[in-house]
């Protein structure tokens, strides 16, 4: 196992400078009942956060297939944020528990293949935590800015 790990070439390339006009893109996949409602509350209370996140609504964090995360990193995103209801408060009883386990495995897998663990982050934001959502987005954006762009086959490369 350790041998295999040594052979993996990190995907992260901190030595490469980011282009001057580079702005990180973060894909946020939020559950409809807690985190999406929380992000709406952030808006309603006019709490400001960095404009890099693009939010996708799903009914429950358990709807998030690891495929979505990988696809996002592969095509458009420099970072991914998944957010659901607090453990125990899932609108669908137990969906976020499945999601939590799935995320842990996905993150290990991504680490394995050389992604920095800050590329994919998970959080629990309830419908009442508008301010917390802003903090989470701020933190994820800052982390991704520190890591720099993801030098993968991005969409623009596909089109060429």
């Amino acid at each position: 196992m350790e041998e295999v790990k040594d052979k993996i070439v990190s995907i992260e390339k901190p030595e490469l400078l980011a282009p001057p006009d580079w702005k990180p893109v973060i894909v946020g996949i939020l559950c409809n009942w807690c985190s999406y409602a929380g992000s709406d509350l952030t808006g309603t209370s006019r709490t400001q956060y960095p404009p890099n996140i693009r939010i996708i609504r799903v009914p429950c964090s358990s709807r998030v297939d690891p495929w979505f995360i990988i696809k996002a990193l592969q095509t458009t995103a420099d970072g991914v944020l998944i957010s659901g209801c607090h453990p125990g408060d899932c609108h669908y009883i137990s969906g976020n528990y499945y999601a939590r386990r799935r995320f842990l495995v996905t993150r290990e897998l991504l680490k394995m293949v050389g992604f920095h663990e800050h590329r994919v982050q998970f959080s629990w934001v309830s419908a009442a935590e508008g301010a917390k959502f802003a903090q989470v987005v701020k933190k994820v954006t800052e982390d991704v800015v520190k890591l720099g762009p993801l030098h993968l086959y991005k969409k623009e490369n596909f089109n060429k």
């Binding site: 992000s39 808006g43 006019r46 400001q48 404009p51 802003a134």
Partner: peptide, 16 residues
């Protein structure tokens, strides 16, 4: 959702 997720939360940066 361009109100809660854009205009209300990025009031200082119209371009973004």
């Amino acid at each position: 959702n361009i109100r809660e997720h854009s205009s209300w939360v990025h009031q200082k940066d119209k371009k973004a």
